[in-house]
Simulated assay, not measured.
Amino acid sequence: MGKLSVFNFLTLNGYYEGKEKGDISWHTHQPGGEEGEYAAEGASSASTLVFGRVTYEMMAGWWPTPSAIETMPDIAKGMNASEKIVFSRTLTKADWQNTRIVKDNIGEEIKKLKKDKDLTILGSGSIVTQLAELGLIDVYQFMIDPVALGAGNTVFSGMKKKLDLKLTDSRIFKSGVVLLTYVPA
């Protein structure tokens, strides 16, 4: 059976995006270095990538571009080659290679997919919230940037029930970024 993992960048005060939808300008990740190596390892895994519409459009607007391929070739290669699923009721086409759109029944679709493959949600706060409430997420990885914002959107915004997590691993990068890995308690 496969696992569903979440991988998100967060600010110290818990935001995964700034005040505007898709704003990750606060994220301090630079090409190369430890975080880049870690991201390249993740991008080269066989995991199917899962997105909501907003994150998908942001990723699809960057990773296939010549700038992304030149700046972060290993990550771009993995992102572009990966199988991708975007959950959206409004998106009508997905031009990024290896992408399919799923319009309904997010929980049932994830249960089906987990039977034989690993899945990784990137960004996509509302998708994380929905799947966390359904108890379908197996691993939560949060890369905490050493920055705080005055406003933004939190990963678990709108969550209706308590989610207890157990820390299973941590890593400190030279940049001050901290990676925390949790599983449901």
Rank of each mutant, 00 (worst) to 15 (best):
G2E: 02
S5R: 02
F7I: 15
N8S: 05
F9P: 04
T11L: 00
G14N: 02
Y15Q: 04
E17I: 10
E17L: 06
E17C: 06
K19E: 13
H27F: 11
T28C: 01
G33V: 00
G33N: 00
E34Q: 02
A39C: 00
E41M: 03
A46I: 05
S47L: 00
L49M: 08
F51G: 07
R53P: 04
V54Y: 02
M58G: 01
A60G: 05
G61K: 01
W62G: 03
P66I: 05
I69P: 06
E70N: 10
T71Y: 03
T71D: 07
T71S: 05
M72Q: 12
P73K: 01
I85L: 07
V86Y: 08
F87D: 08
L91Y: 08
K93G: 04
W96S: 05
N98K: 08
K103P: 04
I106T: 15
G107T: 12
E108M: 12
E109V: 14
I110E: 13
K111P: 13
K111E: 15
K112L: 10
L113C: 15
K114L: 10
D116S: 15
D118C: 10
L119A: 08
G123H: 12
I127P: 07
I127F: 07
V128H: 08
E133I: 07
G135V: 10
L136K: 13
Y140R: 11
Q141F: 11
Q141P: 07
F142G: 12
I144T: 15
A148E: 14
G150K: 06
T154W: 12
T154P: 08
T154L: 13
M159Q: 13
K161A: 09
L163T: 14
K166E: 15
K166S: 15
K166Y: 13
K166D: 15
R171C: 03
R171Q: 10
F173L: 11
G176S: 03
V183M: 01
